[in-house]
Deep mutational scan, measured.
Amino acid sequence: SKDTIRINGIDIDVKDLHEEWKRLVEEALKRGDEELAIELLERALKE
């Protein structure tokens, strides 16, 4: 798994994120759902 995830052309540092969150965000991006990916990231970062 990578340490960054690219959303809207912005590389976001996710190395401190739990693997499960990372996977969910990557799944959302694979489906092209950037809005969901951002929402998941925000939730993950609050934890």
Rank of each mutant, 00 (worst) to 15 (best):
H18C: 14
D11S: 08
E42T: 07
V25F: 06
D13Y: 10
I5F: 02
V25R: 00
I10K: 15
D3H: 10
K46W: 02
E26T: 10
V25D: 00
N8D: 07
E34F: 13
I10S: 06
V14L: 07
E35F: 15
I10L: 13
R43G: 04
L45F: 10
E35H: 12
R31A: 14
K22H: 10
R43E: 07
R6Y: 05
D13C: 11
L17I: 14
W21R: 12
S1L: 15
D3T: 09
E47L: 03
L40D: 00
K2C: 07
E20K: 12
D33I: 03
D33Q: 09
L29V: 09
A44M: 11
E39N: 14
V25A: 02
L24I: 06
I38W: 15
D11R: 04
A28S: 02
G32A: 03
I10H: 11
E20W: 05
L24E: 06
L36F: 09
L45I: 10
I10Y: 10
D16Q: 11
V14H: 03
V25H: 00
I38L: 14
L41K: 01
T4F: 09
K46S: 11
H18A: 15
E34G: 09
R23A: 11
W21T: 15
E34I: 11
E47A: 07
R23K: 14
V14G: 03
K46T: 08
R43S: 07
S1D: 12
L17P: 01
E19W: 08
E42Q: 10
K30D: 09
E35L: 14
D16F: 13
I38H: 08
E19M: 04
I12A: 03
N8A: 12
G32Q: 04
I38K: 15
E42L: 11
L41A: 04
E26R: 10
L17V: 10
L24Q: 11
S1Y: 07
N8P: 02
I5P: 02
K15F: 07
K46P: 03
R6E: 04
D13R: 06
L45H: 11
E39Q: 11
R43P: 00
I7F: 03
E47P: 07
L29E: 00
E35M: 14
R23V: 13
E27P: 00
E42K: 10
A37M: 03
H18G: 13
E34W: 14
D3E: 11
E34A: 13
H18N: 14
D3K: 06
E26P: 00
W21C: 14
L40V: 05
N8H: 14
G9V: 02
W21K: 14
L17G: 01
D3Y: 00
E42Y: 05
A28I: 03
R43T: 07
E27I: 05
N8R: 15
D33A: 05
R31P: 00
L41Q: 00
